[in-house]
Amino acid sequence: MSEPILSLRNINKSFGAVHVLRGVDLDIYPGQVTALVGDNGAGKSTLIKCIAGIYTPESGDYHFDGKPVTVSGPRDATALGIEVVYQDLALCDNLDIVHNMFLGREKKKGVTLDESHMELLARQTLDGLSVRTVKSIRQTVSSLSGGQRQTVAIARAVLWNNKVVILDEPTAALGVSQTEQVLHLVRRLADAGIAVVLISHNLTDVFQVADNIAALYLGTMAAQVKLSEVSTNQVIELITTGKSAGVTKTEAKK
């Protein structure tokens, strides 16, 4: 494996008396899809919020590109090139695809919006991701299907040359063919050199696209392993019991 772009060591996070993350280690590699799995309440969303600067862990080390960094707010994470696509997507239904992709970061010519430039860039990004399912780039997001909306949200994350893109359950609400499309998109992101983190409860999806897999169990990292080295049953064991014969915790650090 190449050097991780982002690595967390011994992360601890509590909400009051509830110790949600207990000494979590995680490595994320460029050009790879890292699947983050774990049962409901295992701490997946909390962990990515720590990465994104929404929560600040009580202790632990955060390394980006080999250097120690402090991320104390969403702006710090954005500045590093980390973008999170949350489960509720956060798109404006009343605006079109181009407007949504550039929301809050509009390109301007003097005081006026440079619509042509934004449309060209948006189109290039979608073309680069081989997105062919939307009819017009100027249609409002309200007229898109769930998969297309997910596509727009992911494309927005890609547009800004991010190094790390984190997707929280991107296929949770999608049908078979749309899930397929989004998974292809996830794969293409990684193939373009981006470090992708995919949170999913669906192990079929995970085994289809991921390169390595990190399993959280009750706030501890049960294991982070290469996908090729584990079977579905072993992953299920990791998720439900926190351990599995033949998988050791240290494998994450090799």
């Binding site: 954005t78 997507l89 956060a90 404006c92 009343n94 605006l95 929301l103 809050g104 919006l113």
Partner: peptide, 17 residues
């Protein structure tokens, strides 16, 4: 543009900075 965005989805607008 931001007026329309806030009216469409204030949370999305906030997260977009």
């Amino acid at each position: 543009r931001h007026l329309y965005a806030v009216g469409g989805n204030a949370e999305a607008a906030r997260r977009s900075g």
